[in-house]
């Protein structure tokens, strides 16, 4: 019998800023390498029967804040299901959209947007954009790893009592003033990291699939992926980080 992994891609057309479909390609490729069939469903404002629990993995890409209100209205009906979902199931939320899962978004024009309140985050839109590389260590599904990517930061993210997803080795992270990057709640990753993160860091992608295998009661797939290309990429990127000029506050001073 075919072993099927179902992926829910939240608002792909509305939230489509930074080559985010790469994350879908990465998770699909890793699942297929392990011999699983993959079904991808796009969820949009017109989806009538969205139930997070129907999926093994949910991905919500970054989007323009202009579109946040209708999405909050849509997801509000599924808030409790999403809270339950991330307790056990992997979910990845990237970039600006992280704020949507928090409590309140303060916009640059002094208006506010009420988030879903799934996490106790608060975000403040910045007057200008900050773009840079980001490099940090983190733990997911019990595995320590290093993550490399890029960050286009349009808002500062106060994680309050939430746990940070990563500890910065380089980069702006949540506010440019702390060593924290993103937040993690249960199995839900809420990160500023673009790249796409799952393409540049296949070790994270592997852990997501490992977790799906556990959730589905499948036997763990033994053969590891050949990550040599991505490891070389990591090496050249960290070499750039080490030598480049930066105006960030040093991590030792945060």
């Amino acid at each position: 019998m075919t072993q099927l992994i179902k992926i829910g891609w939240l608002f792909p057309n509305m939230f489509n800023l930074h080559g985010d479909r790469g994350n879908i390609l990465a998770i699909k490729a890793e699942a297929q390498r392990r011999g699983y069939a993959v079904e991808i469903e796009q969820i949009n404002l017109d989806s009538e029967a969205f139930n997070p629990m129907d999926f093994d993995f949910l991905f919500c890409p970054p989007g323009e804040m202009e579109h946040f209100k209708p999405v909050v209205e849509f997801l509000e009906h599924h808030k409790d299901e999403l809270i339950a979902y991330i307790e056990e199931h992997p979910m990845l939320v990237t970039g600006t959209t992280v704020s949507l899962f928090g409590k309140l978004i303060h916009r640059d024009d002094n208006s506010t947007i009420e988030g879903l309140g799934i996490l106790s985050l608060e975000t403040t839109e910045n007057h200008s954009v900050y773009g840079d590389d980001i490099y940090y260590s983190c733990q997911y599904n019990g595995k320590e790893m290093e993550i490399i990517g890029s960050q286009i930061q349009m808002m500062d993210l106060e994680i309050n009592e939430e746990s940070p997803f990563g500890r910065l080795k380089y980069g702006y992270g949540n506010t440019g003033k702390t060593k924290y990057e993103g937040a993690i709640s249960g199995k839900g990753i809420f990160t500023n990291t673009l790249g796409p993160i799952l393409v540049c860091n296949p070790w994270l992608t592997e852990e997501i699939i490992n977790l799906i295998e556990v959730n589905k009661g499948w036997t763990a797939f033994e053969a590891h992926r050949d990550n040599s290309l991505e490891l070389m990429s990591l090496k050249t990127k960290t070499a750039l980080i080490e030598k480049k000029e930066t105006r960030l506050v040093k991590l030792s001073e945060r």
């Binding site: 080559g19 479909r21 390609l25 773009g131 590389d133 673009l194 790249g195 990127k237 000029e245 930066t246």
Partner: peptide, 18 residues
């Protein structure tokens, strides 16, 4: 290549996935 319009220079290849 590395985006080097101003400091900080950074790596961005994600647009290729579009």
């Amino acid at each position: 290549y590395v985006v080097n319009d101003f400091v900080p220079h950074y790596i961005n290849t994600f647009y290729a996935f579009d």
